[in-house]
Design a protein around this nucleic acid. Structure first.
Length: 256
DNA sequence: ATGCCTATTGTGAATAGA
């Protein structure tokens, strides 16, 4: 059995106590972190908890890391076709015979700007990359903050999100295209039709207290990995702590 | 509602997030 988590921590420095406690309690084998927001990743803190780490950082913004109790091989630190893209949003490695990809997909707000164009172009690059892995029949999982609300049911009130980059037909269409290539949305597959299946609650307007969230952190599985799908759950506990991230972990369990 | 809250930079107030 292999347990993997994805968690947008919204600064690893601000979140270190919460992340450390969470890992020490019952830490998964592999953890994909997003928005570490630094080039100075505290690898030694996680080493003390039995994790090796791999990261690509950036000052102030973005940044992704993979923690693993198992050996990390074949590190990749950028999505192909970069062409001058210097955002730290992609990291991948081979762990336990599985290709693990961790992404922080661009937010894209506001729509109608270069930021939104960048998001869509990034999603197109991602799809081409994943298509190659599928063609090669590479068993892989991709976890992360996709910044896409896939369906109306993944959101507390679609009307509020109508003009948002996370909810545009262009964003959702590209996410859906990845599913139509043959990838499995693990969390929704395990919890079909489940209401209030959220991974993010805004700090503002009492969204957490009212359970008005959105589902934007995802695990997508290649067919080979989907054969191993045992469970996928949201751990809401860290979101309720003092000084919490606005995202909470999504945990994927694969059979051997 | 150009708000609401949080983090970074840097020590103000702007930028970004989603």
């Amino acid at each position: 059995m292999l347990r993997l988590a994805t968690w947008n921590v919204n600064s690893i420095k601000a979140r270190l106590p919460i992340v450390r406690d969470w890992l020490a309690a019952d830490g998964p084998d592999i953890v994909c972190l997003q928005e570490i927001k630094t080039t100075d990743f505290p690898s030694f803190e996680f080493e003390a908890l039995g994790y090796k780490s791999l990261f690509v950082g950036q000052k102030s913004y973005n940044g992704v890391a993979i923690l693993s109790k198992l050996p990390i091989k074949g590190a990749e630190t950028a999505l192909p076709e970069g062409d001058g893209d210097d955002h730290a949003r992609f990291i991948a490695a081979d762990i336990d015979g599985l290709h693990v990809i961790n992404i922080y997909l661009p937010n894209g707000n506001p729509i109608g700007t270069e930021k939104f164009n960048y998001k869509l172009a990034w999603m197109d690059r991602l799809q081409r990359h994943l298509a190659k892995l599928l063609a090669a029949e590479t068993p892989f999982v991709i976890g992360g903050d996709f910044n896409v609300i896939p369906e109306d049911e993944d959101c507390y009130d679609p009307r509020v999100w109508t003009g948002d980059a996370l909810f545009q037909p262009e964003s959702r269409g590209r996410y859906r295209a990845m599913l139509n290539m043959g990838l499995t949305d693990a969390l929704r597959t395990i919890n079909p039709g489940k209401a209030h299946l959220y991974t993010f609650w805004d700090y503002q307007a009492g969204r957490w207290q009212r359970d008005q969230g959105i589902r934007i952190d995802h695990w997508l599985l290649s067919p080979e990995a989907a054969d191993r799908l045992q469970d996928c759950t949201v751990d809401k506990t860290p979101r309720g702590l003092e000084r919490a991230s606005d995202h909470t972990p999504v945990i994927l369990t694969l059979r051997d």
